[in-house]
């Protein structure tokens, strides 16, 4: 669930870049960090005064002038930026993420227009399916009349059906492309939870609820995120399967039967949607808490990270 700025707890000593370490890291992901490094050298050449500057740990008793004359440019440790750009989200994932947002919204909205149809019947038992309850005990039926009025749902069933059966294609195709991309690019490695993720997720949740301190170490996503993002993809698959079993309950009756029958499939379809809504709320709150740097990375792809942070490429390659 939480999108954490991946390493806000790492202590950063701004004025003492560990030059050696940075150099190694830079080589591990050359295409990302080349620019700042090259520019650092150019700058150094233009400003002879700066040439004399050495890292604080080197011998500071040397006379300035001698050092300036004798030391060749290459021999001196160049100034290195303390931050770098990390390519966090590939272009394809950003597109599919943002396409999914209005499409899923449209699916939920049009679905509500359809659900309304069973809320207003004369049988005094509306929504036998869309309710909270067990057997004959019903705690609450969904939704109350004021809700339908609020979203202007009454008598817009045909519109709902029309949009639902239009956008289902976009939702399905986008989802299939997304999963295919995860598999082909290896991005699934950063997303699929490991055994450790489940313990981590509990810890992360407790930290988020301010019940304890100390986030477990993480790479692109923490345990809770991995579980949430993988679940929401599985929920999407669930919505497609339950949706198909409601859409063609005679032709694919074996799926409908496996899901527990037509009414059960509708129930499942409905509660998966409620799951999406819950995910959405938590997701948006966490994105707001995580801040602009994190949000921006879902649009531009890049995040500003401390130069010393391990690049994500490794995680993508080996998991």
């Amino acid at each position: 669930m939480p999108e954490k700025p991946t390493d806000r707890r790492e202590p950063i000593e701004e004025l003492q870049p560990a030059a050696g370490t940075t150099q190694e890291r830079v080589e591990a992901a050359p295409e990302i960090s080349v620019a700042p490094r090259v520019e650092a050298r150019d700058q150094a050449a233009e400003e002879p005064a700066a040439v004399a500057v050495s890292a604080p740990s080197t011998d500071q008793t040397l006379p300035v002038a001698a050092n300036a004359v004798v030391t060749p440019v290459e021999a001196r440790e160049p100034a290195v930026a303390t931050v770098r750009l990390e390519k966090k989200h590939p272009l394809a994932i950003r597109w599919m993420h943002w396409v999914n947002f209005p499409v899923l919204f449209t699916m939920i909205w049009s679905g509500l227009l359809i659900y309304w149809n069973d809320s207003d019947n004369a049988y005094q038992h509306p929504h036998a399916v869309y309710r909270v309850g067990v057997g004959s005990l019903t705690v609450v039926r969904l939704f109350p009349p004021w809700f339908w009025k609020l979203i202007n749902a009454p008598y817009r069933v045909t519109e709902g059906l029309g949009y639902h059966f239009f956008f289902m294609w976009i939702f399905a195709i986008n989802g299939i492309l997304y999963v295919s991309y995860l598999l082909i690019s290896g991005e699934w490695r950063v997303l699929v939870p490991e055994r450790r993720s489940f313990l981590d997720a509990i810890q992360v949740t407790l930290v988020d609820l301010h019940l304890r301190k100390g986030l477990p170490p993480q790479k692109k996503y923490n345990g809770a995120q991995k579980i949430a993002y993988t679940s929401v993809v599985l929920m999407g698959l669930g919505s497609l399967v339950t949706g198909l079993s409601i859409y063609k309950p005679t032709q694919v009756h074996w799926i409908t039967s496996l899901l527990g029958g037509y009414e059960m499939a509708r129930w499942e379809h409905f509660w998966l949607t409620m799951g999406f809504c819950a995910f959405f709320v938590v997701h948006v709150v966490q994105v707001i808490l995580a801040g602009w740097n994190n949000f921006r990375s879902m649009v531009s792809g890049y995040e500003i990270v401390p130069a010393a942070k391990a690049p994500l490429e490794e995680e993508r390659r080996v998991g």
Binding site: E14, L15, P17, A35, P36, E39, A40, Q43, A49, A50, A52, V53, P56, Q60, V64, A79, V80, A81, T82, V83, R84, L85, R296, V299, S300, G301, Y302, I304
Partner: peptide, 30 residues
Amino acid sequence: ERERRDSRAAEVEALDAEVKAQLGQGTRRS
């Protein structure tokens, strides 16, 4: 050498700013 340390810091700051500027461009486009 106080001044030099400052100039070193300024250099690093300039580099950081450059990284951010680079991102800024990409962000605007995105």
